[in-house]
Amino acid sequence: MSDFPANIDYVAEPTPRWEPLHKWANRPYTVLGLSFTPLDTPGQLREQGIASWYGRKFHGQKTSTGEIYDMFQMTAAHPTLPLPSYARVTNVKNGRSVIVRVNDRGPFHKGRVMDLSFLAACRLGYATNGSAEVKVESLLPSDAPSTIVAAAQQPIVATPPANNNKPLVVPMANQTGGIYVQLGAFSSQQNADNFKAHLARELAQDANKLTVHNANNKLYRVRLGPYASRDAALDAMGRVTGEKNLKAVISQ
């Protein structure tokens, strides 16, 4: 990766401060058969798992809060932390720790707890490796309202979603021009667009087949396709369930 900003070494970590939660980005949602209910209080969550990072492919695109992703800032994506909020992330292997501002949803890859910006991954020492085991600690800003401070007194230790072992039902339907694999349905076009962007990095080989389809003006469906045959769709589904460690079954 080249063309680093001249002042990249001087980019400061963000200072946690109270920010009103985003109106849309904190609603419950379903992705790849898993349901997520975002937390409404920062400073509660403590978890440990694998963190990845996202870089130039998503540089300049909108995050779930509508902000523009900058791979050279100290930010991160998380499935359930309040947006926006702040977290301390520590690399378990080398002990390095950074503070990031969480302003995006993801990752949706099984077993990963957070996506960090390229710069944050560099600071933690794992950008060249792609991923690392980290500890994530949601931070409570010192200027948070008293009601939020009281609610944050109940810490949460993250556990896998209750339906983590249930198969994802991925309907396949014969549409004009081929077969599609539906991966998610949203009432908000912005949420669908955000999911499509995040899913693109999990399904790089099929990213050019990801679309958002709105048939009834109510649901925005994120789909893979079209595929010319069922065999071609099955081949793509094999990559989803195998290489990307995502669960899926096919129904027609």
Rank of each mutant, 00 (worst) to 15 (best):
68 I>Q: 01
14 P>Q: 03
99 I>C: 06
142 S>L: 15
90 T>W: 06
160 P>K: 09
62 K>C: 01
60 G>H: 03
252 Q>M: 11
24 W>I: 04
177 G>Q: 07
250 I>L: 15
217 N>T: 03
35 S>A: 14
141 P>Q: 11
43 G>H: 07
44 Q>G: 05
114 M>R: 00
167 P>F: 08
96 R>H: 14
231 D>H: 03
56 R>V: 05
167 P>A: 08
82 P>M: 06
117 S>L: 10
22 H>C: 00
59 H>S: 03
136 V>F: 14
178 G>V: 13
247 K>Q: 13
220 Y>T: 02
9 D>N: 13
236 A>S: 14
98 V>C: 08
83 L>H: 03
149 V>G: 02
230 R>A: 10
28 P>F: 02
39 L>P: 02
238 G>P: 05
237 M>A: 10
66 G>E: 02
183 L>Q: 03
243 E>I: 10
156 I>S: 00
140 L>P: 06
117 S>P: 09
186 F>Q: 08
124 L>T: 06
232 A>N: 12
33 G>W: 05
109 H>E: 13
56 R>Y: 01
218 K>Q: 13
45 L>R: 13
198 H>S: 12
15 T>H: 07
181 V>I: 14
158 A>F: 12
141 P>C: 11
244 K>A: 15
131 S>N: 09
11 V>T: 14
194 N>P: 00
219 L>P: 00
217 N>R: 13
54 Y>F: 15
1 M>K: 04
18 W>I: 04
128 T>A: 13
201 R>L: 09
224 L>Q: 04
83 L>G: 01
